[in-house]
């Protein structure tokens, strides 16, 4: 039996968080689910369709194209992780001079709003006047400019690249913090036992890093899949549907065709898709660390 004082504290403390969650997240979300079951034109009367929107979406010609580009775009999480891990391991070393300065430098891409970084890469990759094309042709790697943002086979990789360049410092930030917390004595001990570089990474670094690794993978997968501003800014979802990752597709339906029913259908599908990608990592995370125990 809890003291009544404690019960009051629980209720009072939970109230803002729970009220917020219901009003700002779950209410609009469930409203969206409801809308996805209708034909719901902008400025028009909704009409019940049941699961009609969903079958229409799955059978649409752009369905597989959009799904493929979404998968490629979510690969960005892997690239971000690779860069962030290297950066964190390097900038943890004590013998590196001016470490603090370099750590700040690593952060500049993430410190700028993503649309700003997007605009900048639009400039750098411009086929006519951009730096990248200029050098690639100058060095004889390319014969003629590539239209990165409108060439179907390049565009989805380019938006993935820009996302990687923009967002990897978030992972770096958290991984470096986790690395810094590993006591030196652990490494010294490992050295006494004659562990080599790989063994020290495998048996000292990795176990300490595990929790942080899972956190950044889960967070970035979720954030990347919800990204809309930057990929939309770079390609507008085109050419055709080549770079219409699911979140961009939501935007296209909602704000360009005014078809809220379809927009929310794609949105709900995206939620399920994200959930499927994240679940294995969430399961690993829960297994190794149970809060409150």
């Amino acid at each position: 039996m809890q003291a009544s004082e404690e019960r009051w504290l629980i209720v009072a403390f939970l109230l803002p968080t729970v009220a917020f969650m219901l009003l700002l997240l779950w209410y609009p979300f469930l409203q969206g689910v409801w809308m996805s079951l209708h034909r719901w034109p902008f400025m028009g009367d909704p009409e019940w369709r049941g699961l009609g929107n969903y079958t229409a979406f799955v059978n649409a010609e752009y369905f597989w194209v959009a799904l493929q580009s979404t998968l490629i775009y979510s690969l960005s999480t892997v690239f971000q992780l690779a860069i962030a891990l290297v950066a964190a391991l390097v900038l943890k070393q004590r013998f590196i001079r001016w470490r603090t300065l370099w750590r700040g430098v690593m952060l500049v891409a993430y410190a700028m709003p993503p649309v700003v970084v997007g605009a900048f890469w639009l400039f750098l990759l411009d086929p006519g006047l951009g730096m990248v094309t200029h050098y690639l042709i100058g060095w004889g790697i390319l014969e003629e400019p590539i239209y990165w943002f409108s060439d179907g086979s390049w565009a989805k990789w380019i938006i993935t690249f820009v996302a990687t360049w923009t967002f990897w410092p978030f992972m770096f930030l958290i991984l470096l913090s986790a690395l810094q917390a590993i006591p030196d004595s652990h490494y010294e001990l490992a050295e006494v036992y004659g562990a080599n570089l790989w063994q020290r990474f495998r048996h000292v670094t990795l176990p300490h890093l595990w929790s942080a690794l899972l956190v950044v993978i889960i967070l970035r997968l979720a954030f990347n899949l919800a990204k809309i501003d930057q990929p939309f800014q770079l390609t507008g979802g085109g050419p055709g549907y080549e770079t219409s990752i699911l979140s961009v597709l939501v935007y296209r339906f909602a704000f360009m065709s005014g078809d809220f029913g379809m927009a929310f259908t794609v949105g709900i599908f995206l939620v399920v898709f994200t959930l499927v990608l994240i679940l294995p990592f969430a399961w690993l995370f829960q297994r190794q660390f149970r809060p409150g125990h």
Binding site: L14, T17, V18, M21, L24, L25, W26, Y27, P28, F29, Q31, G32, I218, L219, A222, L225, A226, I228, L246, S247, V250, Y251, A254, F260, A263, F264, G267, I268, L270, V271, T274, L275, I278
Partner: peptide, 24 residues
């Protein structure tokens, strides 16, 4: 359950919520 109802919303695409939020 409450905790996962909050943290689970991390996977909501914000674009999905922006229409109802803007109207409200």
């Amino acid at each position: 359950v409450l905790f996962y109802l909050i943290v689970g919303t991390l996977i909501f695409p914000f674009i999905l919520l922006i229409v109802p939020i803007t109207i409200t």
